[in-house]
Simulated scan of single mutants.
Amino acid sequence: MAREYSRTNRFGEVVMRELALMLQREISDPRIGMVTVSHVDVTADLKYAKVYVTRFNGFESEQDVQECLQGLNSASGYLRRGLAGRVKLRSIPELQFVYDKSLENGFRMDELIAKANKPRQEDD
Rank of each mutant, 00 (worst) to 15 (best):
N9M: 15
M1D: 07
L46R: 00
N105I: 02
T36I: 08
S102Y: 04
E13H: 12
S102Q: 06
D45N: 15
T54N: 13
A116M: 06
E62M: 10
K88Q: 07
Q63E: 15
R31N: 12
L72G: 04
R3V: 01
A84E: 03
N105C: 03
M34I: 10
G12E: 09
K101Q: 08
I27G: 01
G58T: 04
V15E: 06
N117A: 13
E13Q: 15
R17P: 02
V37Y: 14
Q121H: 12
S74C: 01
K47A: 12
K50D: 15
D110W: 07
G33T: 02
F107T: 09
R90H: 14
S102C: 01
I32N: 06
A2G: 00
H39T: 02
Y48W: 08
A44L: 10
M34C: 04
G106I: 01
E26I: 04
L46P: 00
A84L: 05
G106R: 11
V37E: 03
D64M: 02
L19T: 04
V53G: 06
A116W: 10
Y5F: 15
R108Q: 08
I32H: 12
G85N: 13
A20M: 07
K47Y: 03
R55L: 11
T8W: 00
L23E: 05
E4W: 14
A2M: 03
G12P: 11
R81G: 01
I32G: 05
L69W: 14
E104F: 07
M109C: 01
R31G: 12
V98P: 13
T8A: 14
Q121L: 14
A75N: 10
G58V: 04
N105S: 06
M16Q: 15
S76T: 05
L89V: 13
R10V: 00
L112M: 13
F59C: 07
R31H: 14
A75P: 07
S61V: 00
V35G: 07
I92R: 05
V42F: 13
V98A: 09
S6V: 01
A2C: 00
R55E: 00
G58K: 04
V37N: 06
G12T: 01
N57G: 08
